[in-house]
Design a protein around this nucleic acid. Sequence first.
DNA 1: ATGAAAGCGCTAACAG
DNA 2: CTGTTAGCGCTTTCAT
Lengths: 346, 346
Amino acid sequence: MSDRQSQDSRHNLTLRDVSEASGVSEMTVSRVLRNRGEVSDRTRAKVLEAARQLGYVPNKIAGALASNRVNLVGVIIPSLSNMVFPEVMMGISKVLDDTPLQPVVGVTEYQPEKEEEVIFEMLSWRPSGLIVAGLEHTPAAVAMMKNSGVPIVEIMDVDGDAIDACVGISHTRAGRETATEILKRGYRNIGFLGTKMPLDHRARKRFEGFRAVLQESGVSLKAEEYYSGGSALKKGREMTRSILADNKDLDFLYYSNDMIGAGGLLYCIEEGLEVPGKMGLAGFNGVELIEGLPIRLATLDSCRTEIGKAAAQIIADDIVGDGSSGQNQRIELEPVFNPGDTVRAN
Amino acid sequence: MSDRQSQDSRHNLTLRDVSEASGVSEMTVSRVLRNRGEVSDRTRAKVLEAARQLGYVPNKIAGALASNRVNLVGVIIPSLSNMVFPEVMMGISKVLDDTPLQPVVGVTEYQPEKEEEVIFEMLSWRPSGLIVAGLEHTPAAVAMMKNSGVPIVEIMDVDGDAIDACVGISHTRAGRETATEILKRGYRNIGFLGTKMPLDHRARKRFEGFRAVLQESGVSLKAEEYYSGGSALKKGREMTRSILADNKDLDFLYYSNDMIGAGGLLYCIEEGLEVPGKMGLAGFNGVELIEGLPIRLATLDSCRTEIGKAAAQIIADDIVGDGSSGQNQRIELEPVFNPGDTVRAN
DNA sequence: ATGAAAGCGCTAACAG
DNA sequence: CTGTTAGCGCTTTCAT
């Protein structure tokens, strides 16, 4: 029989054990361990010593059930495979670190059914709040969140109806801004390079906003190219080669994210294409990787860390506050186009 | 009064509510909802309908307390700020997705005290297992994990003593392998570029292994450069400029990670340095970004996804299995040097 | 196949 | 300042 098993069969320590070891009532032990209520220094010391000596670890499951308080915040995101969502997580962590709240992550892989499952799973832990990426959910998921009784913060996107609070940028506007800046600078033969992801609604909204502005100016998209999977940097390179091979007259490439944009930029530089003179480039997200490229890719910051912070703050405020503040907040951050070095001056 | 508050004050749905709505005992409702035990189709249908109609979400807190089973796996990692740990998470998720287990992430920022806190926090939820990055922990943390009675899998590193199971590569060997390959190819004036992180034990072990091999061959490191914070790609570029400015005779640069290596590579290419003829370069991790660089950076795969998968599998096996398998497993993956295009042929 | 009773380990509420 | 009592919502166990 292994070590672990023998320990397994051993009684897990409870408050009662600490109570007996210290000669103090369970209730007072509980008070000491939670720093709640007045306890004499002598009693406190006895309890702390007994708990330490035994190696007591409180059972939050029992505590949560008894107090009807669970200091978890569910965070539901589509993916961990690029830096976008980890950066959102960092913003969330930064704010929650100053509170008793702890984030719990669920990943949906951009699948609505999986999202519904994850939301159900999360809510069954009765968390203090939920942070969910996007505004598009199955009707059942929406119903669950509405009925949950806890603050729900939808993040990343503001183009649509929120269940409760929401924090993000307008991706439609992001696409529009980018198109506007490109046209203003005289580019007219424009190609788009994106991901094969019909369920990435934010990418879709950017594209729609982008194309709408072109159309309003009587400009039509000259070419499109899509990819899925693999190294985004490499795919950006390959797609760029491909789209340029098929469309000799292109003078601008709009990428749906910075990573493929960076790949495209490296390709253009290697091919000796004159950027931004003959060929302009722009991406999306504002990842810090851009800073290290030979020249800075034009982009638009998706404010990931900011969004994470603001979302976490709404949940944190709701928990400590009187409950009257912050509900139904809608925080729209400004998508600011950053021309970098890959679009020419206007 | 807001919507959420009014819902808050509303009684949260319980099994009892479903029981009353369906006219079936709480116990049988519980059986239906968990798919446990024999229940007649008619009863099952009634219960399911009632639960659906009410929008009942089971309370896992209560279930866990009653059953003494918690389907959570704690995952404790130092950081989310590069792709290394998110990739480990992906491996873990992939395996746990086929089980009832769910990962819960805690981040330590490479601080032992914070790690101790996070481990305590995690264990207080009585998870089914713990996956912890690294083999170095505070004595208190080690004691807690040993006493926890659940499987503990230490990941990423195998150079040291594990508490229970461990899965990873030897970073000492990784550093040694890299040095061996470099020397074999005739490079002799070698510089090292790394992070200012005394608590990143794996980076330290790679460096020590690397330097040990050089010393064994009578070669000494010609220069070192360290950075912290900011865009790793940019820092790699800047550090490379700086180290080359101060050391004209260097013919090889070993980077502690691929991202700064990629920055260095871009810099060398721009400067017209002949890579790999006059200047060799190598990084560490084997990130997929490398595939998109002008030439492939030499590196050594840290097997992140594999490690995540194997670690999760150990926990999963322990839960379903008879408990006799897999404990104290030590899985050492092979660090294979990949010369890419930035070291010359030997 | 279904139900009744007894707790899981902790905390709220009240008493002293 | 400390203790007692009664659950939290579910599952286990044992009846029927």
